Computed example of a mutant assay.
Amino acid sequence: MTRLFAALAALALLPAAAQAADGGRVFQLQCRTCHGAASTAMGPALDGVAGAKIAARADFAYSKALKAKEGTWTDAALDAYLAAPLKFAPGGRMTTAVANPADRAAVIDYLKALK
């Protein structure tokens, strides 16, 4: 009976684990409040962000901290930013981090699919 309970418990956890790695779902839960289809005062739209120059959208007023960053939004730069936004760009305005590395990787894959 104990083995059956353990097996059922493990099966019940599988959907939650699969959902945690779903970038679209993580984006909806953690990012969508500020980042929509169009840029707003809360945050820029993120279509085309992967591979783009950092803080380059003309339709958003980026913080001085983020505008001072050079380079492009590579996977590594996106990962560092999502892991610790204020460490990546001290003085920036984004405070929400994606703590789980698997969730960050999934969000980055999701962002790369946004055109």
Rank of each mutant, 00 (worst) to 15 (best):
H35D: 09
G36T: 03
A37R: 12
A37N: 14
A37T: 15
A37S: 15
A37I: 14
A38S: 14
A38M: 09
A38T: 15
S39H: 07
S39E: 01
S39R: 07
S39L: 14
S39F: 07
S39Y: 09
S39Q: 04
T40P: 02
T40A: 15
T40S: 15
A41W: 12
A41E: 13
A41R: 14
A41H: 13
M42F: 15
M42S: 15
G43R: 11
P44C: 13
P44A: 13
A45W: 07
A45V: 00
A45C: 07
L46G: 07
L46P: 00
L46T: 02
L46C: 05
D47K: 05
D47R: 10
G48A: 03
G48P: 08
V49L: 06
V49Q: 03
A50D: 06
A50F: 11
A50T: 00
G51F: 06
G51Y: 10
G51T: 04
A52Y: 05
A52N: 08
K53G: 07
K53N: 11
K53Q: 11
K53D: 08
K53V: 01
I54H: 05
I54T: 05
I54S: 00
I54E: 00
A55T: 09
A55D: 01
A56E: 07
A56K: 09
R57Q: 04
R57K: 15
R57N: 10
R57H: 07
D59P: 05
F60Q: 04
F60C: 04
A61W: 11
A61R: 15
Y62T: 12
S63K: 10
K64P: 09
K64A: 14
A65Y: 02
L66S: 06
L66K: 07
L66C: 09
L66Q: 06
K67S: 02
A68L: 08
A68D: 15
K69Q: 14
K69M: 10
K69R: 15
E70A: 05
E70F: 01
E70D: 11
G71S: 08
G71C: 12
G71K: 05
T72K: 06
T72H: 00
T74V: 09
T74G: 05
D75T: 12
D75R: 03
D75K: 02
D75F: 07
A76M: 05
A76C: 07
A76Y: 01
A77V: 02
A77N: 12
A77F: 00
L78V: 00
L78T: 01
L78E: 08
D79Y: 04
D79I: 09
D79S: 01
A80K: 10
A80D: 05
